[in-house]
């Protein structure tokens, strides 16, 4: 399966722009995982931890985000975080 294009942007800089297997995002109405080919979707992000998976079981990195938005479109997942710190 093709990889998911993931971008994490804060107002100060573009933090991540890479191909990953899956990203789990803390949405205001519950966490959700995004794989490649996800349907168009948009959610508000609550303060929490964002996990990036390189395959089904391995978490490559966790990033603490302080609110923002996540948008999934045909190009991939874009998280617009107010603030993000590598955990």
């Amino acid at each position: 399966m093709a990889d998911l294009h993931f971008e994490l942007v804060t107002p100060e800089k573009l933090l991540r722009s890479e191909e990953v297997y899956m990203v789990v995002v803390p949405g205001t109405e519950g966490d959700f995982g995004v794989l490649a080919g996800h349907a168009p979707f948009m959610s508000v992000v609550r303060p929490g931890e964002l996990s990036i998976y390189s395959n089904l079981t391995t978490v490559v990195s966790r990033i603490r985000v302080e609110g923002g938005f996540a948008e999934v479109n045909e190009k991939g997942l874009t998280v617009l975080a107010e603030q993000a710190t590598e955990a």
Binding site: G27, F41, M42, V44, E74
Partner: peptide, 9 residues
């Protein structure tokens, strides 16, 4: 395409 976007909330 964008017509089918789901929003939460």
């Amino acid at each position: 395409v964008s017509a089918a976007v789901e929003y939460e909330p």
